[in-house]
Structures are given as C-alpha cells and as structure tokens.
Design a protein around this nucleic acid. Structure first.
Lengths: 224, 224
DNA sequence: TCAAAAGTGTTAGATTTACACCCATGA
DNA sequence: TCATGGGTGTAAATCTAACACTTTTGA
C-alpha cells in the first residue's frame, strides 16, 4: 500500500466464453448465476481475480473448476469496464474464450454446475454485458480460425471431413463448397487421413482424419 | 460493499500507445515515468481508473491530459494482469492504442510532458510490460488497417499519395509497389483528389488528396 | 431399390503481382 | 541540364468460386 494508495481499487473478474461444437452447431456454455445481484439469470461463468493470481491464471482456474479440464485453448477477448456494467458494484471484467470438445466435458460435472450448451444463435439475454462479450468472443474466434487451425480443439481427435466442414461453416456463418473445402484441406498437409472409418454418420462410411500438430509446427502456413 | 466484499480489489490502470507518423516512420509517444516505482524509466503514458470512471473514459481522459485532443481514434488492445507485472503493487492494466496526427500535437504541450516521439523500431526498454503492450498494439493496429481506413488519422487532412503510401509501408513493415498502390487507391473512391498541389516535397508538385468520410460510409468496402 | 452421405476435377473469372518509362520543375 | 519525386498501363500468374455426377451400403 505504499505506492498508489491515493487511487481507488476495484474488483476485477474474469468471464469465460466456452465454445463447443455439437449437432453441427456452435454452442456456448452458460448457466444460472449463483450469486446476488442477478441470481438466477442466464450468465457466463466467471470468478474474481485473487490478489495473488494473474488474470490468465484466474481464467484457467475458472475453466478448471467448471470443466475439470486443464490446458484448454484459451485467449483473451478484452476488458469490459463501464462504470455501471455490473448492477451490484464496480467490477471490471476480462473476457476470455476457450475451446473444448463437448465430449471431453463430463456430463455429471456439467449437471452439477447446471451448465447448458446453447446454440450461439439462440442465446437468451444474459446477465450484465455478457451477450456483448459473447459477440466479441465469436468475432475474435472466427478471425483466429482463419489464420490458425484452432478448430480441432472443438472436435474429437478423430473426425470426418464433413464434421470439419460443418465446424467451419458454423464458425464462419456460411456454407462452404464441399469440393473446394476438401481441396484446401489436402493442400494443408497437417490433416492426416487415418485408416479408420466412421460408420456412425453414414451408411457408406467416412474416412477419419486427425490433426498432426508436428507437421503443422514444421510448416507454419495456413489459410482457412 | 454489500455484494463482493469477500473478494480482493486491485488497482486498475490504463496505458496508452499513441501512434504518430513522421519522417516516414511510425512513431510512439513515450516519456519518463514521473512516479515511483520506476521513476525516470521510459514508459507509456497511463493513469489509474477512478471509481466512477469507465475504462474507455479513463483512456480518453489520459489522452486528453497528455495531448489536449479529444475524440481521438482509440481502440482497446487488452488487459495485462500478471501478478508481478508492476514492481510496486498489484495493478491490472488495460492497454489502448490511439492515432494522432503529429502536427495536431502542440509542441509546447509535448515538451511540458517531456514526451518524445520515438520510432517504433527503435524503442528503448520500457517500464514493466510496456514493450509487450506496444508490440500487441502494433499488431492490432496493422490488422485493423487492412480492413478499415483508419490510417488517415495519422496524416494531415490533405496528403499526397506518396505520403499515404509511406504510411502504409511503415505500418505494414514492407514496401509497396507504387503503381499497384495507386491503382487500389483509385478503386476505393473515398480518397478524393483535390485541386491543391503540394510543392514542399517535390519540385514538380504532387496532388493533394483527402479522405471523404461520407463516401466511405456509403460504400463500406475496403481492402488495404 | 432407394435414400443418404462420401468422394472426386475442371474451368472461368477475379485478384494480385511484377515491371519501366516519361513528366515537370527547381536548383 | 540534370536530379528528384510524380505520375501512368499491361500482361502473367495465382487464387477463388462455381459447378454435377458416381460410389457405397443399410434400411
């Protein structure tokens, strides 16, 4: 308290936009707010930044608490700090987005937290400025996905090209030509075909692919 | 203090990366830090967020105090919040970048604040994580400039095409072909040729252009 | 046998890049 | 008269977008 004591301190929190991909839709994990003010409203998950905790750590901790998963792909969206954004007190909140494979999220844990996957295009009004946070997170994620292959984080380790295409369509918000898409995938090189066949989603069966991180790292080129 | 009192509060500050363009170089306004800890080190300008002040307002106020200018183009870069980023206390800082026309900045005011324009490629080590803030601000600004004509904020109202090209080169970090550049400018439509001639930078004289905001707003397309 | 999803190439058009010379003027 | 920066067009190459049919197999 020796240096800046004449200035005001404020609460700083972190809110996380957790993206998942399921049933061909981009989804966000939301829940009912468990504290006042706003108890019971739809809300993102978040937590307060502790005195001895960096903001990235706080986001990781929040994600871990909610999903049980560590080392999720996570990026900062930005700080939200209007004076009256929180109805209770002055809180500056820093939004992060994270990508998870829906199937990695233990259903029991999800229910314990009363968390729900909701289509990003069907979100209800959320607490405070959380809808705006989601919009910005989506823009950010879409932009990132154009230049880095982060989308794999939303899929199982093995996936079909149609799944991958649906993912890009859901994120980009528009349909993609199948042949052009597959042509681009082939050019990338770091999306490997395996010998495995997925028989669940079609009668004929579709080849399963995987993301080869090593190849990607050696060959740092990318375009959607 | 009724809702979140069990959580810790921290100081929140704003740091501004002020970009200028002069002598064909992209420059940043820095100064000597006027407070402890770190007094005398090279630093960005910043200020603490007051209890009754939003973070964007805080950034505007900081810019106004330093430059005397209002309504500068300004965008948030993001929040910086490692526990030990500030050597004195726990401070979460939110970085913003702003664009100003160097000639709009009153020299007297600049000297009063002991502020200096420094080539972004020649920056000295700055206080705390300010170098990293500058790097991120530059990436952000470069990216933005590819899709929106924000560069005009760094130039006088009237400018020659060569000036404009040098600006894009400085921001993009690479040379641009003169004919291709001018071809693109013509296609844009919202960069208007005036009848005025600049005789300062060449013997022959160069046509002066201006950015027509109205035309731009009616025709929301853009590419570098 | 048929419905449903997988898989596969080519072509036209659009965009991007490379490139060189003449012009006007002040010193 | 010459050095300096201003100004202009074309052609090749690359990238992007549009487009339709055959295959496999479970129901």
């Amino acid at each position: 308290m020796t240096y800046y004591s004449e200035h005001a301190k404020v609460w700083v929190s972190v809110d996380v936009i957790i993206f998942g991909f399921d049933e061909g839709k981009l989804k966000v994990l939301i829940g009912r707010r468990q504290m006042d003010p706003g108890r019971g409203e739809w809300s993102l998950y978040g937590g307060f930044v502790a005195a001895n905790e960096g903001i990235d750590e706080c986001a990781s901790r929040t994600l871990k608490e909610l999903t049980g998963l560590r080392n999720l792909y996570m990026r900062q969206v930005g700080a939200f700090g209007s004076v009256d954004r929180d109805p209770g007190e002055r809180v500056v909140s820093i939004a992060y987005y994270a990508l998870i494979n829906v199937k990695d999220y233990d259903e029991k844990l999800r229910k314990e937290h009363q968390a729900e996957w909701v289509d990003i295009n069907q979100l209800p009004p959320l607490y405070s400025d959380h809808n705006e946070m989601v919009r910005q997170a989506q823009r950010r994620m879409r932009q990132k996905m154009r230049t880095e292959p982060i989308g794999f984080r939303l899929l199982p380790d093995l996936f079909t090209l149609t799944q991958l295409q649906r993912l890009y369509e859901a994120v980009g918000g528009q349909e993609i030509d199948k042949r052009n898409f597959r042509k681009r995938i082939k050019e990338m090189g770091f999306i490997e075909k395996t010998e495995l066949i997925d028989k669940l989603s079609s009668k004929r069966g579709a080849a399963l692919y995987r993301f080869n991180k090593r190849v990607y790292n050696e060959d740092p080129n990318f375009k959607l």
